[in-house]
Design a protein around this nucleic acid. Sequence first.
RNA 1: GGUGCCAUCGCCAAGUGGUAAGGCCGCAGCCUGCAAAGCUGCUAUCCCCAGUUCAAAUCUGGGUGGCACCUCCA
Length: 466
Amino acid sequence: MHIYDSVQKAKREFVSQEEGKVSLYVCGPTVYDDAHLGHAKSALVFDLLARVLSANGYEVTYARNITDIDDKIIKKAAEANKSIKEITDFYTDAYHFEMAKLGVARPNIEPKATESLEAMFELIQKLLDSSHAYKTDSGDIYFDTSSDSDYLKLSHRVQDENEKLQRVESSSEKKNSADFALWKSVHDESVSFDSPFGKGRPGWHIECSAMIEKHLAKKEARFAVDIHGGGADLLFPHHENEAAQTRCATNHTLANYWIHNGFVNIDGEKMSKSLGNSFFLRDALKVYDGEVLRFYLLGTHYRANFNFNEEDLLNSKKRLDKIYRLKKRLFGLTHENQKTAFGDELLKTLSDDLNISASLALIDEMISVANEKLDSDAKAKEFKKETLSNLAYIEKVLGFGVKNPYEYFQQGVDEETKAKINSLILQRSEAKKAKDFATSDAIRDEILTYGINIMDTAQGTLWEKI
RNA sequence: GGUGCCAUCGCCAAGUGGUAAGGCCGCAGCCUGCAAAGCUGCUAUCCCCAGUUCAAAUCUGGGUGGCACCUCCA
């Protein structure tokens, strides 16, 4: 398979370090607030990547961290008059709940910063020992960026000399303006952890490096992980700094491949809290089905910036509906999952840097051919089995069409309304039998007022929520 | 200011040198008591200018217009 490496800025053939095995690390959320659509996009992209790697025969070890030590968390806890743990547990649970709704599988490992402090101490100590880090008079520990000749090579950044001088003069005890904190000492009663360096809190970047060393890295390997991913904004400074720490503290490079997903904007504007509640996933999920959101958010290539708007989402849903309608036509038939030509083609397009558009085009073509065949040859036993295998493959690799098709089309309709609709459909059938079309059409119009579309099929009259 | 990305049909969106995928919407037809669903057919020369080439949406240069990052951020 091929993936675009955002550091080398080129599509590269993917070759794992260890035959048949892949390690994937993705920067997860800082749990101090509700997840927004951007978190969803990132989680979905890497969920898809993990599925495609698996489908290619790799045994995937996927780690996505939970950042549960952060100044923003402390601030939130203070504001809400709650403990740190109450805050982080609450938002971690919410994150898991919402991701499950989107069909995002749980990673194999979900390391937390609070559980990885020892690994951080170890890395910081190594950096101090090798003079890549220094301790200031006040007890803070900084990474010395001037000690790393490869610093800024990951993000292809050029340090501005003027800016450099200005910053050093204006700030603190840092040797270089670009130096970043590994350990921030705490001298008062605010939240802190005991460490060999005194009371304090870790810097953000060291958390990820430490978690990778602890959970994924093999000491003798050239790269700590095969693939490192995250949002496009993380390349600098977060990933640059992570890479520098790992490079200087260990004998390996942080990652062989870097993947960064594009940003989500709302109606053409960058997401911000002032724009309103469609920003949060929990609010989006009140209005839209999780799988519809999954299909919509994954429908555009992962590296492109994504512009979220309701009209596009509803158009996108129509495409997902087609998968479910075909599923409905074949509902209840048993089959064994078989390898199909369609499946091979689908995996091929997805393996080309997750070319989702080409994949969706293949799916549409498959659906169209299947409907045509089923229209002309209602029996076609073997063909049906093959089609079911195709659908099952789409479910497995893309996570589309995972629900019961009848329930999919009836979501958001309460039991009372369902009963009413079924009763009206019965009445309409009677009228139709009696060739009383005026009545049957009137009933259809009435059903429509509930936002329900009905269709007469070989399997009887079926209905869908519009 | 620095660095980088992008610009394809009304909308969404593939396609990195060989003569424009797919979806939505629209129009016509088949099917249907009529619909809906499904199926079939029809609809773009790729922001502008110049260049390289037998050949460019795809490469180069120059414009124009969006966007991102520059130490909080998926």
